[in-house]
Amino acid sequence: MSYANYPSLKGRTVAITGGGSGIGAAMVGAFARQGARVHFIDVSEEDALQVQGSLATEGMNSCFHRCDLRDLDAVGTVFAGIIEDTGPIEVLVNNAGNDDRHQVDAVTPSYWEDRIAVNLRHQFFCAQLAAASMRTIGRGAILNMGSASWHVAVPNLSVYMTAKAGIEGLTRGLARDLGGHGIRVNCIVPGAVRTPRQTQLWQTPESEAKLLESQCFPERIEPEHVARMALFLASDDAARCSGREYFVDAGYFGA
């Protein structure tokens, strides 16, 4: 697929969490092809090294950092290393998350805490670290990854949807608090994106047909479609976009 060219992204330092697979991997590739200096964080070393190696064969540079985002001390170390290596972070994409299904009666306090840490907590603390870096140059863009799931009440995802709903509130709060420092904060809200994980775990021919019927535009959403929105919102073309949610869901209204 071809992308629009955003000259303002060339040479910018971009940090992407969860960049080793799915939507995150598509974002790593998209920003790298814009000439950005891409650093990406993931817990899965095997997947991430494949992404890095694939881009290298295209002549594109990217830098993988292995880190469990639940470990906030390790997160701080990774961000400090990125800044030391390439200078202030100019774009942060808070993409990492996990949509494991769960029954309400099976949720324990420890499971709740772990899922909130995986899906919500790190977004705030990564934004905190990135914003401190961005303030030194008076500009920056933070993109938080939401989900259409809580807008349509997907079953067996109560804790995940709680986190994703919170991300939209987090986006509004950060946009207000950081705007005076030249930092824009937005939320991308994907619909049902056809990633390898979704295809392997959740999709069947029957559910695929039902999904397309629930969308205004009856075509599957690919990771690249979400990456295109990220490129725009991170670029200077979106200079007056902040504090909002941008849906990439083909008009998804659930079933």
Rank of each mutant, 00 (worst) to 15 (best):
I183M: 09
C187Y: 04
R172K: 15
L157M: 15
T171E: 07
L170T: 03
T199Y: 07
A148G: 12
W150N: 15
E168D: 12
T162C: 13
K164T: 13
I188G: 02
A175K: 05
M145Y: 07
A141H: 04
G182W: 06
A192H: 06
L174K: 01
R139I: 00
L157H: 06
L174V: 06
M145V: 01
I188Q: 05
G182L: 06
G169P: 10
I167A: 14
Q198D: 00
N156V: 03
G169R: 06
V154Y: 02
A175T: 02
Y160P: 03
T162N: 12
R176V: 14
N186L: 07
Q200S: 12
R176A: 12
N186K: 06
K164S: 11
V193D: 02
V159N: 00
R197S: 09
R197Q: 14
G191M: 07
P155W: 04
R194T: 08
S158D: 11
P155Y: 07
Q198K: 08
N144K: 03
V189N: 02
R197K: 15
L178I: 08
P155S: 07
V185P: 10
V152Y: 01
H181G: 09
E168S: 15
R176P: 03
A141G: 07
V189P: 10
R172S: 14
C187V: 08
Q198H: 05
I142M: 12
V189L: 11
V154L: 13
R197Y: 02
Q198G: 04
G140C: 12
V154S: 05
T199F: 01
M145T: 11
P196W: 11
V189I: 15
G146S: 15
A175E: 04
N186A: 11
A192K: 05
S149T: 11
T171G: 11
A165S: 08
L143C: 03
N156K: 11
W150F: 15
H151I: 02
G180W: 02
N156M: 12
L178R: 09
R184K: 04
T195R: 05
A148N: 10
R139C: 06
H151W: 00
M145N: 06
G166S: 11
H181P: 00
M145D: 06
I142Y: 05
G173L: 01
V185C: 04
Q200P: 00
A148D: 13
V185R: 07
P196V: 13
S158A: 12
G146K: 04
R176N: 10
V159M: 00
R172N: 05
L178K: 06
P155F: 03
G166F: 05
V154T: 13
E168V: 14
V152L: 00
V189K: 07
G138I: 08
T171K: 08
R194Q: 09
L143M: 07
G182S: 04
H151P: 02
I142R: 05
A153G: 09
I183N: 10
N156R: 13
A141L: 05
V189E: 09
V154E: 15
G180N: 10
A153N: 10
G191R: 10
E168W: 09
V154D: 13
T171W: 04
L201I: 08
T171A: 03
